[in-house]
Amino acid sequence: MRPGVSLKPGTPIEEVEDPLEMVLVMTVEPVFGGQKFMLEMMDKVHSFLPFNISMLVDGGLGPSTIDVAASAGVHCIVAGSLVFGASDPAQVISLILRKSMADACPDD
Rank of each mutant, 00 (worst) to 15 (best):
53 I>L: 11
81 S>A: 15
98 R>A: 06
79 A>E: 01
46 H>A: 14
97 L>R: 15
20 L>T: 02
44 K>L: 10
99 K>L: 02
35 Q>H: 06
7 L>F: 03
28 V>K: 07
6 S>L: 11
48 F>V: 01
97 L>V: 13
50 P>Y: 02
17 E>F: 12
1 M>F: 09
49 L>P: 07
56 L>S: 10
45 V>N: 03
17 E>Q: 15
45 V>T: 00
45 V>L: 01
32 F>A: 12
28 V>M: 07
7 L>S: 06
58 D>C: 09
51 F>C: 13
34 G>I: 04
37 F>W: 10
92 V>K: 06
51 F>W: 10
29 E>Q: 14
71 S>I: 00
105 C>T: 10
66 I>V: 05
20 L>Q: 13
40 E>Y: 08
10 G>Y: 14
63 P>T: 05
26 M>Q: 04
30 P>T: 07
94 S>R: 13
53 I>M: 04
59 G>F: 03
32 F>G: 04
37 F>E: 12
39 L>K: 15
14 E>Y: 07
6 S>I: 07
76 C>V: 05
26 M>Y: 01
58 D>K: 09
62 G>D: 15
87 S>A: 12
71 S>R: 12
56 L>A: 09
98 R>P: 01
90 A>D: 11
35 Q>F: 00
60 G>Q: 13
34 G>K: 14
29 E>L: 05
40 E>K: 11
85 G>I: 01
43 D>E: 15
18 D>Y: 04
22 M>H: 13
54 S>L: 02
16 V>K: 00
30 P>E: 09
